[in-house]
Simulated scan of single mutants.
Amino acid sequence: MSYAIVGFGKVGQALAHAFARKNIEVTVASRRPPQALAPQARAIGPTVVAKSLRDALEADTIILAVPFGEHREVAKALPSWKGKTVIDAMNAQVPLEELDGLLSSAFVAKAFTGARLVKGFNHLIAAKLAADPIVEGGHRVVFLSGDDEDAIAPVAALAKQLGFAPVKLGKLDEGGALVHARGRVWGPLIFQDLFKKEQ
């Protein structure tokens, strides 16, 4: 399984730290050329590799960590997203009318035709995402939701590999609504920094 993070701002870099901590290779890309990202990527760790957007999108699993308004530009970079898993780590701080009455991830899914979309890693601030997720014998929780159950399982496995405790919330319009930010409406689980103890 290959991984890419698209977007190399605070959240993208925080996720890159999580991969580097576990020596898991991940490609990072943004609108900027790879050589502009390379020094920061190298500083995070040797498993974090800056590439062009086109090369990054060859990964099996792509984490979207771009500002919400840019996701459609990313979507246009591939003619088909079939066979790809897209993890939506964005929060939609846009007016509700721009979302066609949908939750943000359902809106995003329309742009990534054929992809299996999972909402995840969006409810924590970047500093918490970047920090070691193992705290006082517990693992920091990340919430996952999606309409394709088969897509959630490998994302949960990745979250576990990164040291987090994945908690599945069900479909996007059910449990997923708990971690969605739309306009000025924040789901009740946004920013909840929870830990799960080992059984």
Rank of each mutant, 00 (worst) to 15 (best):
E98Y: 07
S80W: 08
G120Q: 11
K110A: 12
S104E: 06
I44C: 06
S80K: 13
P95F: 01
F112P: 08
P67E: 07
D60I: 03
I87H: 00
V48K: 03
V74C: 10
S80Y: 13
P67A: 10
A75V: 06
V66Q: 06
I44H: 04
P95I: 05
Q40K: 13
R116H: 14
H123Q: 12
P79Y: 00
H71I: 13
E97N: 11
K82C: 10
P46S: 12
W81H: 04
A89P: 02
I44D: 04
E98P: 06
L64D: 04
I63H: 00
I44N: 04
R42C: 05
T47P: 06
I44S: 05
V66A: 09
E70L: 14
K119G: 08
T113H: 11
E98M: 13
I44M: 05
R54D: 15
E98A: 15
L103K: 02
E58F: 03
F121K: 02
L117K: 00
Q40V: 15
A41V: 03
E97Y: 13
E98W: 09
L78V: 05
G69R: 05
K110D: 09
I44Y: 05
S52H: 00
G120P: 12
A111R: 01
E58C: 09
F112V: 05
K51P: 05
N122I: 09
L78W: 01
G101M: 09
K110F: 07
I63S: 00
V94F: 02
L117Q: 01
V86M: 06
N122T: 06
K84T: 12
Q40P: 06
P79G: 06
L78Y: 02
E73W: 10
L124S: 05
P79L: 03
K82H: 13
W81Q: 06
A92N: 04
A75G: 05
L96I: 15
F107W: 15
R72N: 12
K76G: 12
Q93I: 14
